[in-house]
Amino acid sequence: MEKNKVHRLRRVFVWELPVRIYHWLNALCIVALIATGLYIGSPLVLQSSSEASEKFFMGWVKTIHFIAAFLFFFNFAFRIYWGFVGNKYADWRNFIPTNKHYFKEMWQVFKMDIFMMKGKEHLSVGHNAVAGFSYFITFILFLIQCITGFGLYAAMSNFWFAKLFAWVPTLFGGDILLRQVHHWTTWLFILFTVVHVYLVFYHDYVEGRGEISSMGGGWKFIEDEVFDEVKAEKQKKLQEKKEKMEAQMKPLT
């Protein structure tokens, strides 16, 4: 067997602990919310010989839904905050395009990962541009789900926080439409979850950088060559800048 080129990998700390905690708490909440939410929408018909007063099954399902909803909301709010104070991979600019480069990378990802075209594989250590942008869309879904959910909840609560959402049913002209939007958005969450899990496996498989485990320990493993490339690129830029400056200086001397 001929000897293969073996890459040297360097450990990069990508996902800080707060990001990882956020991720798993979020995952837990979403699973709980989807499961209880679908159950509330269409509960099973239970048979019971005991008195209704001794049972509180639907009540518990709803309680879990509401507790998970509060956790989900504050966890989400925390993540937004962390988008401003976290490391570069957690920064909000990963999610919202702010420059041309972002769109270029998106196109690159589409070409390589979705249309499966041949060419140079793109590299992103944290989120790639498409993933980042898709998370931005999920953040909007989060927001829709929080607003519609707490809007439905407001009428039955005395908690000031829930009361903040009392305007929502007004906006939708009542609970019926509001409930529909909440229910339909649930399915977008389900679809997102499926695609998300698939893509994590996909990236782990074709990149071999520890995509799956990165949400556990926070590390990804990046080839040494990548560091050299980045260094070379930086130097090239610096060189160009220097040359440009020199060209400007020349007429003065």
């Binding site: 509960p43 099973l44 018909v45 239970l46 019971s48 209704a52 007063s53 001794e54 049972k55 509180f56 099954f57 639907m58 009540g59 399902v61 009428a155 039955m156 009392a166 305007w167 049913p169 007004t170 002209g173 009542g174 609970d175």
Partner: peptide
């Protein structure tokens, strides 16, 4: 918010329904 008198329209039928204990118990 929708222009209805609060005295009569601030509660859902569900919140004052006498069958509510069955709902909470999950009996349908």
């Amino acid at each position: 918010g929708l222009g209805r008198p609060k005295a009569f329209y601030s509660k859902r039928v569900h919140d004052t329904c006498y069958r509510r204990p069955f709902y909470d118990a999950g009996l349908f």
